[in-house]
C-alpha cells in the first residue's frame, strides 16, 4: 500500500470517497425525485439520475487513477506554497471586493451627498459616486496582485491598477448606458 502515499493516488482515493459519500448521502437527500419516477402512469427519469451518473463516473475515475498510479513515480503536486498562495489571493479578493462594494455607499453617507434621506442607491448613476468603489476596489485588486507577482510593494503598482480601472470605465461605462460596473447592479 506504499503507492497510496503518492499524491495522484491520494487524489484518486479522494475522488472515490467523495463520490461514494455523494451517492450515499448528498444525492438522496438533496434531490426532489429519485432515479426514475412514475408520473401520470408513465415512467420518466428523475432528478437524481444525472447527478448519480456523474458521481459514479467520479468514483470510476478515482479507481482508474489509483490503477494508473501503481506503476508511475511519485511526484509532488500540491505544496504548502499553493495553499498559502490561495489564502493570499482569497484575502486580496475579499478586501478589494469589499472596497468595491462599500466605498461608494460609505462616501455618500459620510459626506451627506444628495441631500436629506438620499443614499448611494439614488446616486449610483451619478459621477463621481458611481465610480468610487470600482476605482478603489479595482486599483487595489490589480495593485495587490502586481505586488504579489513582483514580491515588491510599490505605490506605482496601485497607480497602474487605477489606470486599468479608469480604462475599464472608459471601455464599458462611458459609451454604454445599459452596462453597469461593480457594485452598481447590487445596490
Amino acid at each position: 500500500m506504499e503507492f497510496l502515499r503518492k499524491p495522484n493516488a491520494m487524489l484518486g482515493l479522494l475522488a472515490v470517497v467523495l463520490g461514494i459519500l455523494a451517492l450515499a448521502v448528498w444525492v438522496p437527500a438533496d434531490t426532489g425525485s429519485g432515479l426514475v419516477e412514475k408520473a401520470r402512469g408513465k415512467y420518466r427519469i428523475g432528478d437524481a439520475l444525472a447527478p448519480a451518473v456523474a458521481f459514479s463516473l467520479l468514483i470510476f475515475s478515482g479507481l482508474l487513477l489509483l490503477w494508473e498510479t501503481r506503476s508511475k513515480p511519485a511526484q509532488q503536486l500540491i505544496t504548502r506554497h499553493h495553499l498559502v498562495f490561495t489564502g493570499g489571493l482569497l484575502l486580496i479578493f475579499a478586501l478589494s471586493l469589499a472596497a468595491m462594494r462599500w466605498t461608494g455607499p460609505m462616501a455618500v453617507a459620510l459626506l451627506g451627498a444628495g441631500g436629506e434621506g438620499a443614499g448611494y442607491r439614488e446616486l449610483r448613476d451619478t459621477v463621481p459616486w458611481k465610480y468610487l468603489g470600482f476605482a478603489l476596489g479595482g486599483s487595489s485588486l490589480v495593485g495587490a496582485f502586481i505586488c504579489l507577482a513582483s514580491r515588491k510593494l510599490r505605490l506605482r503598482f496601485f497607480l497602474i491598477g487605477l489606470a486599468a480601472a479608469l480604462a475599464m470605465i472608459l471601455l464599458y461605462d462611458l459609451p454604454f448606458d445599459d452596462l453597469l460596473l461593480p457594485p452598481n447592479g447590487d445596490v
Binding site: 487524489l11 438533496d30 434531490t31 426532489g32 447527478p51 456523474a54 467520479l58 475515475s61 478515482g62
Partner: peptide, 26 residues
Amino acid sequence: AKGLISVSLGMVSAYVATGQGFHPRL
C-alpha cells in the same frame, strides 16, 4: 483518469439547481 475526473466534476457543477422538480437539486 484525470480527464474523467474533470468531466465528472463539470457534470456535477452543471447539475446544481437544475432538473425538473420544484426542489433545486444539490
